[in-house]
Computed example of a mutant assay.
Amino acid sequence: MSLDPVRLLERLIAIDSSNPALAPGGSGEIAIAGMCEEWLTAHGFEVHRLERHPGRPSLVAVARGTGGGRSLMLNGHLDTVGLGSYEGDPLGPEIRDGKIFGRGAFDMKSGVAAMMIAAARATGRGSLRGDVILACVADEEHASSGTEEVLEAFTADAAIVTEPSHLEVTLAHKGFAWFDVVVQGRAAHGSRPDLGVDAIAKAGHFLVALEEWGHRLADGEAHPSLGTGTVHASVIHGGEEPSTYPAHCRITVERRTVPGENADTVHAELTAVLDRLTTTVPEFSYRLHRGLHREPFEADPRQPIVRTLLRHAESALGHPPVIRAERYWTDCALLDRAGIPCLLFGVDGGGAHAATEWADTASLHRLTDILTDTITDFCS
C-alpha cells in the first residue's frame, strides 16, 4: 500500500466527518474511523475502537515495541466543522499550485494523514523498543470527548498533537471557560411599569461591566507568549413579546484563560462583577451557571519530546523552527493534564473553518518526514 501522505489525505477529505454537535445532520466519525481502521490494520497496527457515545468512535492504534523504550502517542482528530459554508465541493479534494483543497485539508486531516504514514514508516524501519500509539479521535471540534475517552484507557511517555501550525512548534495555548449569566426581572404587562422589572435593561448594566472587565484584563499582567486573558459576551437571549416586561435575560460569557487561570478563578472574578451590580443597581439579581471549561496549556521546553522534535525539525527545515503560542484551545491541554508531556506541530496552509480550506502539500511531506524521524529516535 502507498505511504504517500497526500494520497491518504485525499481519501480522508473525501469522507464526510462533520461533527453533528456543530452541524445538525453531520455524519460524525463512523465512516472515517472505519477507513482508518482498515488502513491501520493492513499496516500491522493493533487497533482498538472506543465508542462511548454511539456513532462517535475514536481509534487507538498501537505498534508494540520490543520493550525498554519510551512510548509516543500521536493525536489527531477525525471530525471537521460543517460542510454547508464551504465554497465548492468540500468532499472533492483538489490539488493545484502545490495546495490540496477540501474541508478538513488543513484542520486537521493533513495531520492525521501525516501521523499515520509516519508511524507506518517508522515501525517499518525495524524494531522499536517503545510503543507507537496513534489516537484518531472524535469530537475535538466540540467537546473533545474522544481524547477524554482515550486517556481513560491509554497513556504514553510523551505525545505530539498534529494540529496545523505552519511547521512551527506550539508549546503553549489559551484555555477557556463558559458561563451563563441569567439576569432576573419580573414579568408584567407592558403598560404596568410599576409591576414589571425589565431583565434586558438590567442586563445592559452587566454588559457594560463585562466590557470594563475586559479592559482591566487587557491592562493586567501578561503571559510572556500568550498575552492576557480576555472576556466577551457571545450569546444573548431575552424577552417573549413586545408587550411584556422580560422576566429573564440569559447571556453566555466566554473567558479565554492563560496559565495561572482556570474555571475557578474565572468564577470568582465573574461573581465579584455580578455581586457589585447587586449592590449598585436597584433590583438587579442574577443566577450563574458554569458551562464547559478547558485549561490552558504550557509545555516544558526541556522535555525530551520537545528537544527530539526540535532537533529533527531543524535538520529538515535547515533552520531552527519557530516556537509559538496559540490563542485557540487544543487537546494538548488534556494530554498535559493526564501527565503526558506534549507539544503541537503540524502543516502549513489556511482556511480552518472557512469557505475555502487548504494544506500546503510540500509541508505535508516535510511534516511526515519530521514525525517519522522523531518517532524513530524517541522510541528507539
Rank of each mutant, 00 (worst) to 15 (best):
R7I: 03
E10L: 02
R11N: 07
A14Y: 06
I15E: 10
N19A: 11
L22D: 07
L22H: 03
A23C: 06
G25Q: 05
G26W: 03
E29K: 09
A31Q: 11
H43E: 13
F45R: 02
E46S: 12
R52I: 11
R56P: 01
P57T: 12
S58I: 06
V60E: 10
V62D: 02
G65N: 07
G68P: 03
G68C: 08
L72F: 05
L74A: 10
T80E: 11
V81H: 02
P93W: 04
I100L: 14
A105L: 12
G111K: 01
A113V: 04
A114H: 02
M115E: 13
T123Y: 00
R125D: 13
L128S: 09
V132W: 02
V137L: 01
V137T: 11
E141Y: 04
V150Y: 03
E152T: 14
T155A: 08
A159G: 14
V161E: 02
T162L: 06
E163N: 09
E163Y: 12
P164Q: 12
V169H: 09
T170I: 09
F176C: 13
F179E: 03
F179D: 02
A187L: 04
H189T: 07
H189Y: 14
R192Y: 10
K202V: 04
A203D: 02
V208W: 11
E212F: 07
E212L: 12
W213P: 04
W213S: 03
H215R: 12
R216H: 15
L217S: 01
A218M: 09
A222R: 14
V231F: 04
S234Y: 05
S234L: 01
H237M: 04
G238L: 07
E240H: 11
P242L: 08
T244W: 00
T244D: 00
T244R: 15
P246E: 08
C249L: 06
R250D: 10
P259A: 13
P259W: 12
A263L: 01
V266W: 00
E269N: 10
E269D: 13
V281P: 07
P282Y: 00
S285N: 09
S285M: 00
S285R: 14
L288A: 07
H289A: 14
R290I: 08
R294C: 01
P304A: 12
R307Q: 15
A313T: 13
S315G: 12
L317F: 02
H319F: 11
P320L: 08
E326R: 15
T330N: 14
T330L: 12
A338S: 11
I340Q: 05
G351Y: 06
A355Y: 09
A359L: 05
A362P: 00
H365F: 13
L367K: 06
T368D: 08
L371D: 10
D377K: 01
C379M: 10
